[in-house]
Simulated assay, not measured.
Amino acid sequence: MRTKYTPVEIIAGGVADTRETFAELYVELHELRQEAAAYYYRAFVDTDDGAEPVAPSFHPAPPGFGGNELARPARRVDLTRLTDAGLTLYVFGVQSALAEREELVRQIEAAQHDLERMLIAMDGTIADVVSGLLRRPAALDRRTSAPPEASQLEPWDVPVRQPGTENYL
């Protein structure tokens, strides 16, 4: 008996077989996003005020989303049993998955770039804060230890205009 596949099963088979080759990209993208979230949290949330530490992200499904049924994996497609039209559909599924992979790689590169920019900004900000804190005591010591400069002007050496008139004293 010859196994028959629907066009959707053939396309899904091509997608599923190709996705298996780049499943680690999803994990890498998720880890980059989690790392960026942790750095953002450290930079902008003050835990000394009783804020809760960062927790793993949890996104519940919206109401009416469903999810009460089990997802059935697509059956494996035997390529030797496909006709030329079936092989064309399978190739279409593979191309769809490869386009998805390219988008994943683009998102990973963007996330890495954003993470690098965030670290550079944090390093620069931290360096500015630390150098400012180190300069403050030195500037305060200079201000308080230096004797006040003696004024070279006598009190009445500067002309003063009388209010409401054009006369100067």
Rank of each mutant, 00 (worst) to 15 (best):
D49I: 11
E149M: 03
E24W: 00
F44H: 13
D114P: 06
D17L: 01
A55T: 15
D114Y: 11
L115Q: 13
Q162E: 13
G86K: 11
Q112K: 15
M1G: 03
R75E: 08
A16T: 04
P155D: 14
P56S: 14
V158F: 07
R2L: 08
H30S: 00
V15M: 01
T88V: 13
P147E: 13
T125H: 07
E154Y: 04
M122G: 06
L87Y: 08
A85Q: 15
E69A: 14
A43E: 12
R106I: 09
L82Y: 07
A111V: 01
V130G: 06
G14L: 00
G50D: 04
E28T: 14
A71I: 07
Y5E: 10
R81M: 13
A51R: 05
Q152V: 14
F58K: 05
Y90P: 01
F92K: 07
L87P: 10
V130Y: 05
A36C: 02
A36R: 03
E31T: 01
D123K: 11
A37C: 02
R19A: 07
L25F: 00
V158R: 09
Y168R: 03
Q34R: 01
G93I: 09
F65M: 10
P155K: 06
G64C: 02
R143F: 04
L153R: 13
S145N: 09
W156T: 15
P73R: 13
R72V: 12
V45I: 13
A43G: 03
P155N: 05
V160H: 05
S96L: 14
Y40T: 11
D157E: 15
V91S: 11
T21F: 00
F22A: 04
R143Q: 10
T47G: 03
A74I: 06
K4C: 07
A16N: 11
A74W: 12
L115D: 09
Y40E: 08
E31I: 03
G50E: 01
D157M: 15
V94W: 05
D123H: 03
P163Q: 08
P148S: 08
E103S: 13
T88R: 14
G14M: 00
E35Q: 06
A110P: 10
R161D: 01
T6F: 01
D128E: 12
S151V: 11
M122P: 04
P73E: 10
R106L: 13
F65Q: 11
P148H: 06
P137C: 01
T18H: 01
Q162C: 02
R2G: 11
E31C: 02
A99Y: 12
L140F: 04
G66Q: 03
I108G: 14
E166C: 00
P148I: 07
E9G: 01
T47F: 02
M1F: 01
